[in-house]
Design a protein around this nucleic acid. Sequence first.
DNA 1: CTCCTGACCATAA
DNA 2: ATTATGGCCAGGA
Length: 134
Amino acid sequence: MDSAEFHAAVYHVVRQIPPLKVTSYGHVAALIGIPRHSRHVGQALKFLSPDATPPVPWYRVVSSSGAISSRGPGTEGAQRQKDELEAEGVEVSTGRTGDMRVNLAVWGWFPQVGSIDLPEFAGDAAEGDEELDQ
DNA sequence: CTCCTGACCATAA
DNA sequence: ATTATGGCCAGGA
């Protein structure tokens, strides 16, 4: 799968995250069939344009610990993510140091791999072994 | 080509 | 709970 297909697969999966639920970068990658590409899920979401159609609920993706990545001091991305989540009714706790996190035990959405709809090119990879040839 | 970085993860102490 | 370490893969300098 090339870069464009990867992006498409990420968006496809993220769009299936139900309201009031969140999932992790790692699980999105696993659902696509590439469990070791967790970092690139974030990359793909970064490339995402706000006016994408249909919209992609990027804010429903957090780290595996439930923490919202800070993106560094001075950036408001994390705060915006918190606002989006709370607007839906998801509880986001904020520590005294400004660390924001979601309780995955309550809000987590981690469907079994293969139990959700996937793009055809990714379905192949999700089934089992890929690129045995070549 | 090598080196560094990243909206990360798993494990160990 | 926290920090340290190693691994991961793709892009960019």
